[in-house]
Amino acid sequence: MSKTAIKKTASLPELVVRPEFEVSDLEQAQTGEVAIKLSWVERIWNVDAVRKSVILLSLVVVWQAYTVGFDVEPLMLPSFSASFATLYNALFHGDLIFKIWFSIKVLIIGYSAGLFLAAVLILLATATRFGSDLIAMATAMFNPLPAIALLPLAMLWFGLGTASLVFVLIHSVLWAVALSTHSGFEGVSQTLRMIGRNYGLRGIEYVWKILVPAALPSILAGMKIGWAFAWRTLIGAELVFGASSGSGGLGWYIFESSQNIETDGVFAGLFMVILIGFLVENVVFRNVEVKTVIRWGMQR
């Protein structure tokens, strides 16, 4: 053993001891330009909005060229210009705008009622362990149940009218929001909880000033999912329901157009559905996020 060890030591590289040194004065940088400006074409192309608008525009052009160039049957796929003209007419000369307003009104009522009920449930859940168990079970059961499946029951209980729509909308919002808020509350760090109690916060005040802001990323995520479900449920419900109630919202407009084989009308309706959905997700919710959780560094 000792022999091999000695052998090994002999073949190991030796330390090379060099003189120390210290720089007394750093030279001024001569590295040339530290930053070079990009050409303006590159800079414009680097703006997200510009690139995305170009993509959108080219999609429209392809659509238009395809339908016109190949003489596609407008009943199957109307051209972009035809769809857009129908939309324009329906908005400014027809009653589409009222239909949209009808949908949005129902949506807002259902959504806010759902949020309110979710808040009540969550308060119950935070107050007692029994409440917490009850809500956990109810959400686990009802969250996977598509709200639209309750529409037949709702029509039976509340008749053909706004009440039925609101009922299914509440169902679509309530569980998604309650579920993610509840898990958000459970994820609030022990330290923050102790801080809140340290400063004497109790009951509702503790929930409002500590738990809600600390769980805001989850709450917002729940509200977004709740919105997405509600929006889908509303359009779906109006598709069925419109047929029976006669006058309806945006979903009904699409249904009516497809029944009359006015495919350009279907596309006009879809444009509006996309526009509203886009505005809510990328303007309303995005703004709330930028002003809260992103600003606070709780979410990127």
Partner: peptide, 9 residues
Amino acid sequence: QEFDQLLPW
């Protein structure tokens, strides 16, 4: 000890 003791909001 934890850095998350400040209210991030």
